[in-house]
Amino acid sequence: MKAIQYRTYGSSDVIEQVEVSIPSIQSDNDVLIKVKAAGINPIDMKIRMGFMKEIRPVEMPFIPGGEASGIIAAVGARVTKFKLGDEVIALTKKHSYAQYVTAKENSVLLKPEGLSFEEASSIGVNIGTAQTVLFTEGKLERGQKVLIQGGGGAVGGAMIQMAKAAGAYVMATASGEGVALAKKLGADKVIDYKLNDVATIAKDIDLVADTAGGDAQEKLFQILKPGGKLLSIATQPSQDLAEQYNVTAYFVASDISSENLKQGIDLIEAGKFVPIVSKIFKLEYAAIAQDFLGAGGANGKVVLLVE
Rank of each mutant, 00 (worst) to 15 (best):
R48K: 11
M49V: 12
G50P: 05
F51N: 13
K53Q: 15
R56T: 11
R56V: 12
M60A: 04
P61N: 15
F62T: 13
G65K: 09
A74M: 08
G76N: 06
G76R: 06
R78S: 15
T80L: 09
K81H: 12
L84N: 05
G85T: 12
E87Q: 13
V88K: 08
I89M: 15
H95P: 03
H95C: 01
Y97E: 14
A98D: 09
Q99P: 04
V101D: 02
K104W: 07
K104A: 15
S107Y: 01
S107F: 05
V108A: 14
V108P: 15
V108Q: 10
S116R: 06
E118S: 06
I123V: 10
I123A: 03
V125P: 00
T129H: 01
F135R: 05
E137T: 02
G138D: 05
G143W: 07
I148W: 11
G151S: 00
G152R: 00
G153M: 05
G157D: 04
A158P: 07
A158T: 11
A163R: 03
V170I: 04
M171S: 11
A172I: 04
A172Q: 01
T173M: 02
G176N: 01
E177V: 13
L181T: 04
K183T: 09
G186S: 11
G186R: 07
